[in-house]
Computed example of a mutant assay.
Amino acid sequence: MASIFSRIIAGEIPCHKIAENDQYFAFLDVFPCAVGHVLVVPKQEIDYLFDLSDELYAGLMAFAKQIEPAIRKAVPCKRVGVAVIGLEVPHAHVHLIPMNSMSDMNFHNKLKLSPEELAETAAKIRSFLN
Score class of each variant (00 low, 15 high):
34 A>M: 12
86 G>Q: 03
52 L>G: 05
24 Y>W: 12
104 D>K: 02
53 S>H: 13
94 V>D: 02
94 V>S: 03
58 A>M: 11
83 A>N: 08
48 Y>I: 15
49 L>M: 15
79 R>Q: 13
18 I>N: 01
96 L>G: 03
24 Y>V: 02
104 D>V: 02
73 K>L: 10
83 A>M: 14
29 D>T: 12
25 F>T: 03
96 L>S: 07
55 E>K: 14
105 M>W: 00
69 P>K: 12
65 K>C: 03
22 D>L: 09
82 V>F: 11
97 I>H: 05
35 V>Q: 14
72 R>P: 00
92 A>H: 08
44 Q>C: 08
35 V>N: 07
65 K>E: 12
72 R>C: 00
104 D>C: 08
33 C>N: 10
45 E>H: 09
95 H>L: 10
48 Y>G: 10
74 A>C: 13
75 V>L: 04
82 V>G: 04
14 P>H: 10
67 I>L: 08
65 K>L: 01
75 V>Y: 00
13 I>C: 07
27 F>E: 00
70 A>C: 11
37 H>R: 09
33 C>R: 01
49 L>V: 15
91 H>L: 05
21 N>Y: 04
46 I>K: 09
44 Q>H: 12
93 H>S: 06
32 P>A: 08
102 M>V: 14
20 E>N: 06
28 L>F: 09
42 P>N: 12
29 D>R: 02
96 L>A: 08
45 E>G: 06
59 G>C: 13
57 Y>E: 02
72 R>W: 01
104 D>E: 09
81 G>P: 03
22 D>K: 15
47 D>G: 11
11 G>H: 06
71 I>A: 07
91 H>T: 02
23 Q>M: 12
86 G>K: 04
20 E>V: 06
10 A>L: 05
9 I>C: 11
43 K>N: 13
55 E>D: 15
60 L>C: 10
62 A>F: 01
72 R>S: 08
30 V>R: 04
94 V>H: 04
98 P>D: 08
99 M>A: 14
18 I>L: 12
34 A>G: 01
43 K>V: 09
84 V>L: 07
94 V>P: 01
69 P>L: 14
8 I>S: 02
25 F>W: 08
92 A>G: 13
90 P>T: 05
100 N>P: 07
62 A>V: 02
32 P>L: 09
25 F>P: 02
26 A>C: 10
37 H>S: 09
31 F>R: 15
61 M>Q: 01
105 M>L: 14
98 P>S: 12
16 H>C: 07
69 P>N: 15
21 N>L: 06
81 G>N: 12
88 E>I: 05
37 H>C: 11
79 R>A: 13
40 V>T: 09
75 V>H: 02
27 F>C: 06
47 D>T: 15
77 C>K: 03
42 P>C: 11
65 K>W: 01
96 L>P: 07
20 E>K: 05
36 G>S: 12
97 I>K: 00
26 A>I: 09
81 G>M: 04
98 P>T: 12
101 S>Q: 15
71 I>T: 07
90 P>M: 10
50 F>P: 02
26 A>M: 11
54 D>Y: 09
77 C>Y: 02
105 M>N: 00
43 K>H: 13
83 A>E: 06
17 K>Y: 01
79 R>L: 05
64 A>S: 15
